Computed example of a mutant assay.
Amino acid sequence: MKLNSICSFVLIASVFVGCNQSKNSESETKDGTRKLVIGSTMLSMQNEFVVNVSDEMEAKAKELGVELITVDAERSALKQVEQVESFIAQGVDAIVMNPCEVEASSPAVKLALDAKIPIINVNSETTAKPTSFVGSDDVESARIAMNYIVKKLGGKGNVIMMHGYMGQAAQIKRDKGAKEILKANPGLKLLAEQSGEWDRAKAMSLTENWVQSYGTKINAVFAQNDEMGLGVVKALEAAGLKNKIIVVSIDAIPDALQAVKKGTLDATVYQNAKQQGSKAIENAVKAAKGEAFEKEVLIPFQLVTKENLSEFLK
């Protein structure tokens, strides 16, 4: 019986060794060195711009020969913190986070830094300072959008603003930028403002309510992202008001560019998903290897109208 127990133990140990060797071989590069593993938690994979950023991260990770594990936080900061905890437990080499909220996602940054794992925030910010931030100045994006409205309305008229997910950095900063321009142009009145939560269907429903309340009093709508902007356009078209109301949004996703081409969306503000995604992975890899990297990367926004649309269409 004792001999049988020893044999069983040896057999089990051999199986475990075999499993471990198999796992390690999958994580090795062609030259025998271990592949770097990066964990990525994204705000919402139901959002087209976020998906575009994630796709670029995947492409860059493949190019650099690193393994990328991507999870969807589904707009939940609590879930995002738990996902970062899971990455830490897995022993990843670096983490890229597309934060759900400025405050509520901040504990994830501290957890990673306490575990001595570099964490890169992409596209959106947290109060807690990460290892590196890669994104754009959202205040500037709103200034660009609102200045376009000022120009089109001649500095006078009633404007409605549709917010993104409340508490997220982009929503907070785009609100700030828009309010700066409104304050500088007293001829513009903010008729109403509410959150459409970055969602096309919710934006359409919200716009239908605004049409019922204000009708032709509305001169322009600033939607803080294209998904909402396209929902606004659809509702205004159904009400027969699109030709009378200016609509501007942010991101320049493919659907929005086509809407600008058709003339249903007056303008969008281009945010470079490709550069944000690829640079986030580059910084994560450099930080994991102990190499020099940029602490902050700000990629400029650009106004897109029919006049310069050809520069952005693929």
Rank of each mutant, 00 (worst) to 15 (best):
S14V: 13
D55M: 06
D31I: 05
Q171P: 00
F9V: 14
K234E: 13
T41E: 01
L182R: 04
F222H: 07
E227D: 15
G135F: 07
S205M: 12
L188D: 04
D266I: 00
A235K: 11
I160P: 07
S27R: 14
I69Y: 02
T216N: 15
M162T: 05
W210I: 10
A128S: 14
M162V: 08
N219A: 05
F16G: 00
Q302Y: 08
S86H: 07
V232D: 12
L257H: 08
T29G: 06
T216V: 13
A280Q: 03
G154N: 09
E74M: 12
N185V: 01
T29D: 11
E237I: 10
K129W: 01
N4L: 13
I6V: 14
K289R: 15
Q80A: 01
P118D: 04
L182T: 04
L313A: 06
E237H: 03
Q302E: 15
K217E: 15
G277I: 11
Q276P: 00
V92W: 01
A170G: 13
L303N: 02
I299N: 07
T127W: 05
E140P: 00
S132Y: 05
I299A: 06
G263M: 02
I281P: 02
A259C: 04
E103D: 15
E197R: 10
G240S: 06
S8R: 09
L257Q: 10
R75W: 01
V285F: 03
A59W: 03
L111T: 01
L241F: 10
Q21T: 06
L206Y: 10
D175P: 00
L64K: 15
A115H: 08
E63L: 08
E282F: 07
R75D: 13
I172V: 15
V269L: 08
T33A: 15
E63V: 09
G277V: 11
T70L: 05
I117F: 07
K156D: 10
A259V: 04
Q171W: 00
G277K: 12
A145T: 05
K156T: 14
E237P: 02
G154K: 09
E140M: 09
S124G: 10
P118Q: 05
P130M: 12
V37I: 15
E48A: 14
D93C: 06
A192S: 12
I299K: 09
Y270N: 06
S205I: 04
A292I: 03
I246G: 11
T126P: 14
V233Y: 06
L111P: 00
S136H: 08
E103A: 14
Q21V: 06
V247I: 07
V260N: 01
G157A: 07
S25Q: 12
I281G: 03
P300Q: 05
D72M: 04
Q258V: 11
L182P: 04
S40L: 04
E67M: 09
L236S: 07
E101L: 15
A288N: 02
A61R: 14
W210N: 13
V53Q: 03
Q171S: 11
G263C: 03
